[in-house]
């Protein structure tokens, strides 16, 4: 269990999660980016930039 940086709620994160994956907090629905693993660190996911896409 990891702590949401926005609301400090518990966020369950899969064991095999990788850095730069997105998880969603169950308590406040914030989009969170995994910025580090072991230990898992979460940050509010940055806004989509204007040139993102395929």
């Amino acid at each position: 269990m990891t702590v949401c940086p926005e609301c400090r709620g518990a966020v369950s994160v899969p064991d095999d999660v990788m850095a730069a994956e997105i998880v969603v907090c169950g308590e406040c629905s914030s989009e969170l980016e995994v910025v580090a693993v072991t230990p898992t660190v979460l940050a509010l996911a940055p806004e989509v930039e204007e040139d993102w896409g395929e």
Binding site: E6, C7, V24, E27, C28, S29, S30, E31
Partner: peptide, 10 residues
């Protein structure tokens, strides 16, 4: 506590 950043019922 109900303060969601996304979804229908925030």
């Amino acid at each position: 506590l109900v303060a969601h950043r996304s979804g229908l019922h925030r």
